[in-house]
């Protein structure tokens, strides 16, 4: 899967983090052209870290849209800090990416 895209900017100590996470987010209720159920495949957990410290954990169900967009704001941040976003899906697959605050 393609890499997570992260855009992270800081202003007056507050970081705005925007991310796009490539993932099919299959609900498990859709059928393919032959009428077979497409198995569920979705992100269950997203962990957001700031300089190695977990600042937020999100738990998602299959009703989060395909290729999820996820944005949040974080206090006490400065330029040069690292933001890391990682996910784990219901099949045990994982991915992570980092961005430096600008």
């Amino acid at each position: 899967m393609a890499k997570i895209k992260i855009r992270a900017k800081v202003k007056n100590g507050v970081a705005s983090v925007k991310s796009l996470i490539p993932h099919p987010m299959e609900t498990g209720t859709r059928r393919d052209a032959d009428g077979n159920l497409i198995p569920a495949h979705y992100i269950e957990t997203v962990v957001c870290e700031h300089n190695g410290e977990v600042v937020m954990t999100a738990h998602w169900g299959p009703s989060v849209s395909k290729d999820p967009y996820f944005a949040f704001k974080l206090a006490d941040a400065k330029a040069g800090d690292t933001i890391r976003i990682s996910w784990t899906d219901n099949l045990g697959e994982t991915a992570a990416n980092e961005a430096i605050l600008k």
């Binding site: 937020m56 989060v64 944005a71 704001k73």
Partner: peptide
Amino acid sequence: LSAVFEIGPRIMPDVSTRVK
């Protein structure tokens, strides 16, 4: 239930996403 956000003390409670 679509999403649960565990908000740490430094997260400003302001989150965005997209749902079905």
